[in-house]
């Protein structure tokens, strides 16, 4: 039993980290989310779950979405308090101090555009890209299945608009 868990852990951990890193755009937080999902499975017990990899992937999505929302609320709160740029300023200062590589520019731009979306819209967009069906998306972000199409279409539109605002040349 414990050995089964070990095997599952080493197999699933890297996958879950990649899944979460894509959704969050932050590797360090993604590791925390993946680990938290695995710890939960360990607590509940492997034998109680029918399809552990699917369960882990679902819980990881839930954790990421929850993180995004709390992060979003925190940011909105701080934006009310600080205006838009205080956090950006410092993270930019930190990034330039660490001499951020130029080849990450494209990543940064897309990440920035994604962050402009509501957490719900962002999650829908990213889950759809990752191949999830409407049912699964609806369950994770707690919306009616019939709204997924509308939200997805709107999220893509906004994503493109935000991206073009950031780099008007394209």
């Amino acid at each position: 039993m414990e050995k089964d868990f070990q095997i599952l852990y080493s197999k699933m951990y890297p996958k879950l980290v990649r899944q979460a890193a894509f959704v969050l755009g932050d590797r360090a937080v993604a590791e925390d989310m993946a680990q938290e999902a695995l710890l939960r499975l360990h607590k509940i017990g492997l034998s109680t779950i029918d399809n552990p990899p699917a369960w882990l992937s679902k819980v990881t999505n839930n954790l990421c979405f929850s993180y995004m929302r709390s992060e979003g609320s925190r940011r909105r709160r701080e934006e009310t308090v600080l205006g838009n740029s205080a956090e950006d300023t410092f993270s930019q200062a930190a990034a330039s101090a660490e001499s951020a590589a130029l080849d990450r520019e494209e990543f940064r731009l897309i990440h920035k555009a994604l962050k402009k979306l509501q957490p719900r819209d962002r999650m829908v967009l990213l889950m759809k890209f990752s191949g999830y069906k409407y049912d699964e998306i609806a369950a994770t972000v707690e919306i009616n299945r019939n709204s997924v199409g509308t939200i997805l279409a709107r999220a893509r539109k906004k994503f493109k608009q935000e991206y073009e605002l950031i780099c008007p040349t394209t």
Partner: peptide
């Protein structure tokens, strides 16, 4: 866009 993004996050 997201394909490029995902290969970066990977």
């Amino acid at each position: 866009s997201l394909t490029a993004y995902r290969s970066a996050t990977d």
